[in-house]
């Protein structure tokens, strides 16, 4: 599989960025809608998140008097870190445009950078809520890190690479045999991670504003206007990043390996299907589970780490994965 010409790569990169930026509010809309419907509510229209963003971009910015110059910039750095993770992942075409420059560990690093900035900004105003959200979010993030890394090890095992494109290409080359127990185990672990990282139930409730339960919302209380817009947008993008990665590795079919109008169209179409089904699943899950106590999140992380380690054990010790 040879990489296409640089200008094609560049076009792909721009298109992928636009795609992810464009559809991420939609997926948030789907999740809210599914959740509402399964609770016998009508729910907001699918396009509501776009309207929210437009509204926020028009609003005035207000900063706390006690906040330093970090506050106006932190959400943007956080947002940029998330957006920058896009070209390292396989979306509808492999190899990913910048796959050569960064592997999944870079993606972990970029997510950590984004979280670091948000958590710092939360402390900036000196409000108790901010501190609470910040410490909780970093706590969840610190526990998620080993899971993420071990899942990368487990996923990368059969192909011997930590690069997303190589993992996906290897999966495609195996055909259906790609769906090994080791892969399923690791992907289950990643599913748990996805819920924790994107602040969904049972780890965090995106709809709450109660101080006992808030995590992410507590961190961003001081923000409004365009800053809040990029925070909300970034949250959606983070979901798309992780859901896109999970579906690309678990079900790589449809991802194009050669240029061609048909293949690319199929790839994009299937990507949208995969992403929206993930959002649909998460929405349903959210109605079925309650928010967990913060300290039970550690149980969840332990389970995820154990599953990832189990997957590695199956791959390497029995050779199930390859």
């Amino acid at each position: 599989m040879t990489a296409p010409a640089p200008w094609v790569q560049f076009l792909l990169l721009v298109f992928e960025l636009a795609l992810v930026l464009g559809i991420s509010p939609m997926l948030v809309g789907i999740m809210r809608r599914v959740k509402a419907r399964s609770q016998r509510r009508l729910g907001p229209p699918l396009l509501q998140p776009y309207r929210d963003l437009r509204k926020l971009f028009r609003k005035d910015r207000i900063y706390a008097e006690s906040a330093s110059t970090l506050t106006p910039y932190a959400p943007w750095v956080s947002f940029v870190a998330l957006v920058s993770a896009v070209p390292f992942l396989p979306w509808f075409f492999v190899p990913a445009p910048l796959g050569f420059a960064g592997d999944l560990i870079v993606v972990v690093g970029l997510l950590a950078l984004s979280r670091f900035m948000t958590a710092l900004a939360a402390l900036d105003a000196g409000s108790t809520f901010g501190g609470m959200g910040s410490t909780r979010d970093m706590w969840i993030g610190a526990l998620a890190e080993p899971t993420f890394l071990l899942v990368i090890f487990a996923w990368g095992a059969p192909s011997g690479s930590t690069q997303a494109s190589v993992i996906v290409e290897h999966g495609l080359s195996l055909g259906l045999a790609h769906l090994s127990p080791a892969l399923l185990l690791a992907s289950t672990a990643f599913g748990v991670l996805l819920l924790a990282e994107t602040g969904r139930l049972p780890v965090d409730n995106p709809a709450t504003h109660l101080e006992l339960t808030m995590v992410h919302e507590a961190m961003v209380l001081e923000y409004t206007g365009q800053d809040l817009a990029v925070i909300e947008w970034g949250k959606g993008i983070k979901f798309v990043l992780l859901a896109g990665l999970l579906t690309a590795v678990l079900l790589p079919w449809g991802i194009a390996t050669a240029l061609g109008a048909g293949a690319l169209a199929l790839g994009v179409g299937l990507l949208l299907v995969k992403l929206s089904s993930t959002a649909w699943l998460v929405g349903h899950l959210e109605t079925r589970v309650a928010k967990w106590r913060l300290f039970r999140v550690a149980d969840l992380s332990t389970l995820a780490v154990a599953l990832a380690l189990g997957s590695i054990a199956l791959t390497y010790l029995v050779g199930v994965g390859s």
Binding site: P181, T302, L303, L309, G310, A313, L314, V318, V320
Partner: peptide, 28 residues
Amino acid sequence: ALAGLGCLLLAVAVVGPLTPLAAVPAAG
């Protein structure tokens, strides 16, 4: 959760080496 992992590791360590010997339909 960790005990589950322990079970898996134990099983893999004990039975893993046998797998190539037994004509098992699927290795895992």
